[in-house]
């Protein structure tokens, strides 16, 4: 299957690959996986006291679409507040990357990773209760 140019660009030059200290109080970590294809995604955010995402990093083991979705997610999250970041929708990611229907689940995975990272941060800060 042919990847779109944008997917290829993110796949060949992934933005913000890396790892943050998951134990740091200002870091939120989201770890998600898709069993059907075995993809694993780690997405981390570093948040300032006023709730703005200063930095975002990811590491994804999976197909090009999964890598591109998480790479794009980190780009979009930077500079946003955590509440704004939580509103990023998989459909917007899929549209931007022109993902074909069979790869939509990759963008869903990225959205779920964003939500998990924000939730982890909020839990650390006592903004929401642990589940």
């Amino acid at each position: 299957m042919a990847y779109s140019e944008k997917v290829l660009d993110h796949y060949e030059n992934p933005r913000n690959v890396g790892k943050m200290d998951a134990d740091a109080p200002d870091v939120g970590t989201g770890m998600v996986g898709a069993p059907a294809c075995g993809d694993v995604m780690r997405l981390q955010i570093q948040v300032s006291d006023d709730g703005i995402i200063q930095d975002a990093k990811f590491k994804t083991y999976g197909c090009g679409s999964a890598i591109a979705s998480s790479s794009l997610a980190t780009e979009w999250m930077k500079g946003k507040t955590i509440d704004e970041a939580e509103l990023i929708k998989n459909t917007t990611i899929a549209e931007e990357l022109a993902l074909p229907p069979v790869k939509i689940h990759c963008s869903v995975l990225a959205e779920d990773a964003i939500k998990a990272a924000v939730r982890d941060y909020k839990q650390k800060k006592g903004l929401i209760k642990e589940v």
């Binding site: 770890m31 998600v32 996986g33 898709a34 069993p35 059907a36 694993v40 780690r42 590491k59 083991y61 689940h105 869903v108 995975l109 779920d112 998990a116």
Partner: peptide
Amino acid sequence: PEETTIQDGEFLLQQMEWR
């Protein structure tokens, strides 16, 4: 469901390490 997102933290961490 065929496709779903799992958040099985401990196992996913292990999965990352294996990768």
